[in-house]
């Protein structure tokens, strides 16, 4: 396989994954409006298309056609750079996520993963940590006190919870002995549901730490203080309008999807079936290739639904509660989990 074929193939994969991801983002927004609507005992969008299914298209058209206002006193270079950074970082990290069985590779072309990196998990964490700049710079360059407050809160929150997030994943990395996401999934593939890290690996404490830290990392309820409407108007994106606002919006949902993908890969066995080998490999190769994707999407959908469910159920935390919770409870618990997992691994040997 020459290098040019490889480049061409990669570009094709990037295009497909980006289109799929952005479509998923649009429909997650619809899902959220629908589910939160039902939680609040109303219908949600229902007029455009059957069951309101074409609502994302109309929303997109609306955002494109709105007037793009740039306030006079913003610091323009960073004001324009911030949404690009936010969405760029949100989209890049999906590149290392394996969606389906990577061994399905006709003629050496891996179909279900853009790039199989040795340090896949670290790439995701690194890019997420760069994504903070999008929000921080947006708030600062807007020259607005609500924006600045929102972005200060957000930077502090993201730095604090990144520690708990990273440490909660260490246990899984120790069990798998690798940072490669494909290897981590394969280490959970043996007995279906029973060998997933959350059950068979006894990583349920780590899973709940990860889940809470991830909600804080993506600025979602109950930790959505950077954009708390009742105090900060809209937080860091108060001064953004039209597509620039939509860029932040898309970045938030893309981050949600990435976080759900990582949760699936790390704790819920990625693309592997929960039934293990009970429904073994089929005769038809196409079903064998598609079925893992089905399981993966189902698990990611579950996490997205959980996000929305939590948003519809829990009230927002106070800021000092958020910081106390992160530093006093989540972080020590994550460290204890690492100690416990290493003891268990040492005794098992």
């Amino acid at each position: 396989m020459t290098i040019w074929w490889f480049v061409l193939w990669s570009i094709l994969k990037v295009l497909v994954v980006t289109v799929v991801l952005l479509t998923a983002v649009a429909y997650t927004v619809l899902l959220e409006r629908k589910v939160v609507g039902r939680i609040q005992n109303r219908w949600g969008p229902s007029r455009v298309g059957p069951f309101g299914l074409l609502q994302p298209l109309v929303d997109g058209a609306k955002l494109f056609l709105k007037e793009d206002i740039v306030p006079t006193s913003v610091y323009k270079p960073l004001y324009l750079l911030a949404p690009v950074l936010a969405l760029g970082c949100a989209l890049i990290s999906i590149a290392v996520v394996p969606f389906g069985n990577p061994e399905v590779a006709p003629q050496g072309f891996r179909i279900f993963q853009i790039s199989d990196v040795n340090i896949g998990l670290l790439v995701v964490l690194g890019i997420t940590s760069i994504g903070v700049y999008g929000i921080a710079l947006a708030g600062w360059s807007s020259n607005n006190k609500y924006s600045l407050m929102g972005s200060l809160r957000s930077s502090a929150q993201l730095i604090s919870y990144e520690l708990a997030l990273g440490l909660s994943l260490v246990g899984v990395v120790m069990l798998a002995g690798s940072l490669n996401l494909r290897v981590i999934v394969e280490s959970q593939a043996a007995h279906g549901l029973l060998s997933w890290n959350i059950f068979g690996g006894f990583q349920f404490v780590a899973f709940f730490i990860y889940l809470m830290a991830a909600y804080a990392e993506t600025n979602r309820a109950p930790f959505d203080l950077p954009e708390a409407e009742s105090e900060l108007t809209a937080g860091y994106h108060t001064e953004y309008s039209s597509m620039k606002f939509a860029t932040f919006f898309m970045a938030e949902y893309a981050n949600m999807i990435t976080v759900s993908c990582v949760a699936t890969l790390m704790f819920f066995g990625g693309w592997t079936s929960p039934l293990g080998n009970l429904i073994g490999p089929f005769q038809n190769q196409i079903i064998n290739a598609i079925l893992p994707i089905f399981w993966f999407v189902l698990k990611v959908f579950f996490f997205l639904f959980l996000y929305i469910w939590v948003r519809g159920t829990l009230p927002r935390f106070r800021y000092d509660q958020l910081m106390n919770f992160g530093w006093r409870y989540l972080l020590p618990l994550a460290i204890l989990n690492i100690v416990g997992t290493s003891l268990w691994l040492a005794l098992k040997q």
Binding site: G126, V132, A136, L152, S155
Partner: peptide, 19 residues
Amino acid sequence: AQIIVYAGAIMVLFTFVIM
């Protein structure tokens, strides 16, 4: 590690302080 520690954490603190 360079990205996570320096670009992602230390420099965020720098910008945080400047802001």
